[in-house]
Design a protein around this nucleic acid. Structure first.
Lengths: 355, 355
DNA sequence: CTGTTAGCGCTTTCAG
DNA sequence: CTGAAAGCGCTAACAG
């Protein structure tokens, strides 16, 4: 069942069928309707390869996600959820997600090659090092790219992330309102965007509220549980230990919970902990984590939306965009910071009496 | 940089280049080496679409995974890990994973159409209802398919799962050896393969050890936390409550932990719980879950291996397979049950003194 | 508005 | 062993 067969059955040429099926303006409505009806009836499916071959762009969006079990920060459960959101959002745009596998080779061109091989329409990047050569090469190749929690930029690249500053600020506010004045933070690696922005938000809100943040109160983990444990033990060993701690990732926050327990403290009686992300486990641990929730589906949807914009821009589409405001005048798609929401559970309480 | 350019630069015809690059026997070794060297040097990448168009089979493997947030059993964290395993295993075979999105339409042909559109080499199914029309249609279409935890079979279909019976049996054995004699079970829906097999394994091991299983001790959840909670509360409300319970999924097992707590019981002092899967949260909850671990990477690798076999069979490859034993003589790929391993943590203890 | 025609980049007969 | 030539199924000029 190919386009020729369809043309025969509808009594027109293949060109007309193609036009009708691709919603081109230059077909008479009656012809179009008839063709579309016959196509549907016959269950005709255009061959995606043939179409890509001539159009030089497929309906595939690559997902660059370094899932090597070894790679730091890669296997964040958070990202697995984003993946699902991507799939859902992409479905509405007629695109499909292709997980690009690097199969061993890791020269700087792996992603670029994969993109070309499959004539990708664009790519979504997450959980990778945005400074790594293969990644920068991809960005520089001019392929529309959107980073999730990765500050990639360029003529055909942009990113989406959470409003990390506001999120961290809300965590501080929550603790402050419970009476806490000795508030510490466990953030991520200093080279990662969410780490930096969350730390900034933390500092800003503390300043705003006149809360002093001694430098020992600022610690850096790697978003994995063990680092949250270590940092928290360190904090608790301080001469003036904090009474509340903002942990910039739920995995690390669970580590903080364990650290408190091992230090003989009860959460939230002796120590208050607020996490970040609201991963599944956040609601499962005891005490359930109070945490700054990211809307992962919305994050994915925003990424897809931005990507589609980039693709359209690149194609030179002059059509009136649905939301003209969100494409910058200079023909660029601005980064987006999506709002977060504090989810109050059981890991924060009033300040403990002075010991 | 296309094959023509490459041919020009190597001073041969495109046909020869094609043969060389595809490892065809009918090229002189010297010519081949020279062409391969030049290709590598120039970073030549064959266009996948052009190649698929003529070969009528792409390097894409579809992943049919019903990730609608609504779909039962779909968003199991377990499956997200399998996904990563699939990607890794597939990379070695030169294939890429395509997440097939159904974009609204849900007639019986959605998957079949998607498969045809992209000329998929095969498909991996997980987290879907193997009785659903779109799924059976895909299986019946003759596309090589392998189900993960789904008992799909057919001339070009097979499946992989855990050795659920042995796994459940090991859970029973563990409890029995700790002295438990009143052992209950929370399994999944009766129509799902893992539920059924785990329940069977549970029953067999109980019988083997002379442990009686009253019918009230057998409960069915849906693999989600809440159902584990409900079932466990029910069990604990029995006149003769169990002292140990085998919960056939970690999510449900966490629910069981909460149920125990809410019933005023301490795990493992008053109740022993063993889970199944060893998802990430299993190690994070307190007490950490003793659970039957599945090797998710191995499961994924086995799925890929089976799929590749099916693809080869279908192509009519007569080459000597690497492991001839695992392809059945009748030209079929048998289902596989991978071994599980009991991971002992803190949720099981000796039988409590009679209250 | 519609048909004809020329490829997209590659593999694969079929001759040599 | 190698080359010439015929498409794979579709889209996009270019004429009508």
């Amino acid at each position: 069942m190919d386009i020729r067969e369809l043309a025969r059955r509808s009594g027109v040429s293949v060109a007309t069928v193609s036009r009708a099926l691709n919603d081109r303006p230059d077909v008479s409505p009656r012809t179009r309707d008839r063709i579309v009806a016959i196509a549907r009836e016959l269950g005709y499916q255009p061959n995606e390869q043939a179409r890509t071959l001539v159009r030089r762009r497929s309906d595939l969006v690559g997902l660059v996600w370094d899932t090597g079990y070894a790679a730091t920060g890669a296997r964040h459960p958070f990202l697995a959820d984003v993946l699902i959101g991507l799939k859902i959002a992409l479905a509405d745009t007629g695109h499909h997600l292709l997980l690009v596998s690097t199969s061993g080779a890791d020269d700087a061109q792996v992603y670029v090659r994969a993109a070309r091989r499959h004539s990708l329409a664009g790519a979504v990047l997450m959980g990778v090092d945005d400074q790594a050569a293969p990644v920068t090469a991809l960005i520089d190749s001019g392929l529309p790219c959107v980073g999730i929690d990765l500050p990639v930029t360029g003529p055909a690249a942009t990113f989406v992330t959470s409003d990390n500053r506001a999120g961290a600020a809300s965590a501080v506010a929550h603790l402050h309102e419970l009476g806490h004045r000795r508030i510490a933070v466990v953030t991520g690696p200093p080279e990662m965007l969410p780490s930096v922005e969350r730390l900034t938000g933390f500092r800003e809100e503390c300043r705003r509220r006149g809360v002093d943040v001694p430098s020992e109160y600022v610690t850096h983990g790697d978003f994995f549980l063990a680092s949250g444990y270590t940092c928290t033990r360190q904090l608790l060993a301080l001469p003036q230990p904090p009474t509340g701690v903002v942990v910039c990732g739920d995995e690390m926050a669970v580590g903080a919970l364990h650290a408190a327990a091992d230090a003989g403290l009860t959460v939230p009686r002796d120590l208050s902990v607020v996490g970040y992300d609201d991963v599944e486990a956040a609601a499962l641990v005891r005490p359930a984590l109070t945490t700054v929730a990211q809307d992962r589906l919305a994050l994915a949807a925003a990424a897809v939306d931005s990507l589609i914009r980039l693709v359209a821009l690149r194609r030179g589409d002059a059509e009136t965009p649905a939301e003209p405001a969100s494409t910058d005048p200079d023909g660029t798609v601005p980064p987006r910071h999506l709002p977060n929401r504090l989810v109050v559970r059981d890991s924060c309480g009033p300040v403990p009496a002075e010991r």
